[in-house]
Measured scan of single mutants.
Amino acid sequence: KKRTSIEVSVKGALESHFLKCPKPSAQEITSLADSLQLEKEVVRVWFCNRRQKEKR
């Protein structure tokens, strides 16, 4: 599967949402994915990776 490159504006939106809620529910992920026109899986993986980055 190809890597999904996420645009800067979209990254900003994800980042601000992450600061409010680092662990969104499935429903939040779905609505966020719909509003940003991304697949749910892409958003879910982005949050997983972002939480891991926070640990480092």
Rank of each mutant, 00 (worst) to 15 (best):
E54D: 08
E41L: 01
S25N: 08
S9P: 11
K20E: 04
R44P: 02
L19T: 08
V42G: 04
P22E: 07
V45N: 12
W46T: 00
K20F: 08
R50E: 05
V8Q: 14
I29S: 01
E28T: 10
K40A: 12
D34P: 03
F18E: 00
C21G: 04
S25G: 08
C21W: 04
I29A: 00
E7D: 14
N49C: 09
S31W: 12
K53M: 15
K53A: 03
E39K: 09
L38M: 07
A13F: 12
K2Y: 11
Q52W: 07
Q27V: 11
L36Q: 00
E28D: 06
V43R: 00
T30E: 13
R50T: 02
K23S: 13
S35K: 15
K40L: 09
Q37Y: 05
L14H: 03
S16W: 05
F18A: 01
R56M: 15
S25F: 01
P22D: 09
G12D: 12
R50H: 03
R50I: 02
V42W: 09
F47N: 00
V45F: 08
K23I: 10
V10G: 06
P22V: 03
A13C: 11
K11R: 09
S5R: 10
A26V: 11
K2E: 11
K20N: 07
C48F: 14
E15W: 02
A33S: 07
E54T: 04
A13G: 05
K1T: 07
V43T: 02
V43I: 08
V43Y: 00
Q52Y: 06
Q37A: 11
L36C: 05
S31I: 14
Q52I: 09
K20W: 03
R51H: 10
R56Q: 09
S16A: 15
C48Q: 15
K1S: 06
S31Q: 14
K53G: 10
Q27A: 09
K1V: 11
L19P: 01
K55P: 05
V42L: 12
T30Y: 06
E41T: 06
E39V: 02
V8P: 15
K55S: 13
S16F: 06
E15K: 02
S35E: 13
L14S: 01
F18Q: 00
S9I: 08
I29C: 03
E54G: 04
E39P: 07
Q52F: 10
R56V: 12
K20D: 04
R44C: 04
K20Y: 05
R3Y: 13
F18M: 00
S25W: 02
A33M: 03
A33W: 03
S31C: 13
E7H: 13
E39L: 02
P24S: 00
R3T: 12
V8W: 09
I6W: 06
Q27M: 05
I6F: 04
K2I: 07
S35M: 10
P24Q: 02
C48Y: 14
P24Y: 00
G12H: 12
S31G: 12
S16D: 08
S9W: 13
R44F: 04
I6L: 14
F47Y: 06
R50V: 00
R51T: 04
C48E: 15
I6P: 07
N49H: 10
R50K: 08
L38G: 01
R50N: 01
E15F: 01
C21Y: 04
P24V: 02
P24A: 02
G12Y: 11
E39A: 07
Q37T: 06
P24T: 00
E28H: 01
V8A: 15
Q27Y: 06
K23W: 06
S31P: 02
L32E: 01
V10R: 06
S31K: 14
T4S: 12
R51L: 14
P24K: 01
E28S: 04
V45H: 14
K23F: 08
R56P: 03
E39F: 00
K55E: 14
R3C: 15
G12S: 15
R44Y: 05
F47Q: 00
S25H: 04
V45C: 06
E7F: 06
L32C: 00
A26K: 08
P24E: 02
Q27C: 10
S9H: 14
I29Y: 03
E54K: 04
H17N: 07
G12E: 14
H17D: 02
V43M: 00
E28F: 04
L14K: 01
S25D: 09
D34F: 13
K55F: 08
S5F: 11
K40I: 07
A26C: 07
T4M: 12
C48A: 10
L38V: 09
R3V: 14
I6Q: 07
L36E: 01
K40F: 12
V42Y: 14
T30F: 05
Q27F: 06
A26S: 09
K2N: 05
V45Y: 09
P24D: 00
R51Q: 08
T4V: 10
S9K: 15
T4H: 05
V45E: 11
S25Y: 02
L32T: 00
V10L: 09
C48W: 12
K1N: 12
K55D: 13
S5C: 13
L19I: 10
A26T: 12
D34E: 12
S25V: 03
K40D: 05
P22S: 07
I29F: 02
P24W: 02
I29N: 00
K55M: 11
S25E: 04
F47G: 03
L14Y: 03
V10M: 09
K40Q: 14
I6M: 11
C48V: 12
F18V: 00
V45M: 10
V42T: 12
D34Q: 15
H17W: 12
K11L: 13
I6C: 08
L36G: 01
V42A: 10
S31L: 13
N49V: 10
L36M: 04
R51F: 05
V10P: 04
V8Y: 15
T30A: 11
S35A: 10
S9Q: 15
A26G: 09
A33K: 03
E41Y: 04
S16K: 15
K55C: 06
V43Q: 01
R50S: 03
I6D: 11
K40H: 15
E7L: 08
A26D: 15
C48I: 12
Q52A: 13
R51G: 08
L38R: 02
K40Y: 10
L32R: 01
L14A: 00
K53T: 13
T4C: 06
A33R: 01
E28M: 04
E54C: 06
S16P: 04
V10Q: 09
S35N: 09
P22F: 00
S35P: 00
S31Y: 13
T30K: 13
L14Q: 02
A13V: 14
K11P: 06
V8R: 14
L14E: 02
Q37P: 01
Q37I: 03
N49M: 08
A33C: 05
E7S: 15
S9V: 09
E7V: 07
F47V: 02
W46N: 01
N49E: 14
T4L: 08
E54R: 04
L19R: 13
D34A: 14
Q52E: 15
F47M: 05
F18T: 00
K20A: 06
K11E: 13
S35T: 13
E54P: 02
P22Q: 15
V10D: 15
S31E: 14
Q37K: 11
V42N: 06
T30R: 09
K1R: 06
I29G: 01
E39R: 05
K23R: 11
L36T: 03
V10F: 03
T4F: 15
E7M: 13
A33G: 02
L19G: 07
V43F: 02
K40S: 12
Q27R: 12
P22W: 03
W46I: 01
V10W: 08
A13P: 04
V43C: 04
V8T: 13
L38W: 02
E39G: 06
C48K: 15
E15Y: 03
N49S: 09
K1D: 14
R56D: 15
L32M: 10
Q52H: 12
W46F: 05
S16V: 07
V42H: 14
E41C: 04
K53S: 15
F47H: 03
